[in-house]
């Protein structure tokens, strides 16, 4: 698992590559802790290269969102594989997260 962070159009875009599960969650949390400490207002997380997410992985994403909300930050998830999106639908996390089909759209409409 790897997290790559880029700046695009004054937004922070994070690319997660690999699995988001109980084994990788501590590293993912660590990568986002730095952004949260800086109170980054808007983060787009591109999940195109995420192949697997378990309940711990979902919890990690909820935790990052929760931490961002403490200072009014917002997060968008993009480019999710169909199977992973279905986990968000089953657990109704689709109502909690802003899920956008495509990264470019998520960036240009992130007001």
């Amino acid at each position: 698992m790897a997290v790559k962070i880029e700046e695009k159009n004054n937004l922070t875009v994070c690319y997660i590559d690999g699995e988001i599960d109980i084994n990788t969650s501590p590293d993912i949390k660590k990568a986002f802790e730095k952004l949260i400490a800086k109170k980054v207002p808007k983060i787009v997380i591109n999940l195109a290269k995420v192949t697997y997410v378990d309940s711990s992985g979902l919890a990690t994403l909820v935790e990052i969102l929760k931490n961002m909300r403490t200072y009014g930050g917002r997060m968008r998830l993009t480019n999710m594989a169909h199977k992973i999106k279905s986990l968000f639908e089953i657990t109704k996390l689709e109502k909690l997260f802003e899920i956008i089909e495509d990264e470019a759209e998520a960036i240009t409409t992130f007001i």
Partner: peptide
Amino acid sequence: DPTIDENRMKLGGRGVYLVRHL
């Protein structure tokens, strides 16, 4: 039930729920 409003922000409780669906 992790899908109800009051539980949606909780970190745990989704494992068994997912298993029951999948």
